[in-house]
Design a protein around this nucleic acid. Structure first.
Lengths: 103, 103
DNA sequence: GTCAACCGTAAGCGGTAACTTACGTTAGTG
DNA sequence: CACTAACGTAAGTTACCGCTTACGGTTGAC
C-alpha cells in the first residue's frame, strides 16, 4: 500500500473539502461550477481540489478550457476499506469484552 | 440526525487523533497508556480525547483513579454510514456515465 | 493524614493551513 | 488578430489548532 503525502483522512478533515467532495459524489463538475454555491473563491476551490487529488479522492479531465473533476472510485474504496478495518477491530474488541462480562 | 460541534471527520482529520483511535480500536486503554507510545505529552492526549468524545467516537469510564477510554460503536457506525452514502452516490454516478458511454 | 498516581484544564506560544488578491497561461470565439 | 472564459499558482495575511508547561482535583495505598 503506497503512502501519499496527503492522506484521505486529512483531506476530508476540512469542511470545505467535504462539501466539494459531496458535490462531486453527485456528479462531475467544473471548478467554476463547484465555486458557485460555495462561500469561497474559485482559487480556493482549486487549492482544495489539488489536496483532494493528492489524496487520490478525485480525478480531473480537460474538456475545452474547463477541467471536469469527479471522485476517484479507487481512493474512495481505499478509504472505505481503512474504515472497515477500524470497524472490524472495534467489533472484535467488543466481543471480547462481552465474553468477559458473561463469565 | 443531531449535529455536533465537532464532527467525526474533523476529529479524525488529525494524525495524532487517528493514532489514538487506532489504539482504542484494538482495546480500551487509559490516558497514560495511550500517551506511552505516542510522541506527545499526556495532556495533549487528554485534549485529543476530548475532541474524539465530542465527535461521539470514543467513550470513557472511571476505574479508580484512571479513566478508561474505548471507541463508541454508535459513532463509528454513523461515520461508516456517512461514508457509505458517498459510496452509493458515487457508484450511481459512475453507472450513469457508463450508460452514456455505451449509447 | 501523607504520599503518589492519574487525570483534566488553563494559559501561552509557534506553526500551519485556509483564504483572498493578483497574475500568467491556455483554449475557444469573433 | 483581439477578446473572453476558465483555470492554476504565487504571495501575503490572518486565524486557528496542536503542543507544552504549570496547576488543581480526585482516588487509592501506606
Amino acid at each position: 500500500m503506497t503512502t501519499y503525502a496527503v492522506d484521505a483522512w486529512t483531506a476530508l478533515g476540512d469542511s470545505s473539502r467535504r462539501q466539494i467532495f459531496e458535490l462531486l459524489a453527485e456528479r462531475p463538475r467544473s471548478v467554476t461550477e463547484i465555486a458557485r454555491g460555495l462561500p469561497i473563491s474559485r482559487p480556493a476551490v482549486s487549492q482544495h481540489l489539488r489536496v483532494l487529488k493528492q489524496a487520490r479522492l478525485v480525478q480531473a479531465r480537460s474538456e475545452g478550457t474547463r477541467r471536469i473533476y469527479q471522485v476517484d472510485p479507487a481512493g474512495l474504496a481505499a478509504l472505505r476499506a481503512e474504515l472497515d478495518g477500524f470497524w472490524g477491530k472495534a467489533l472484535e474488541n467488543f466481543k471480547q469484552i462481552a465474553e468477559q462480562e458473561t463469565e
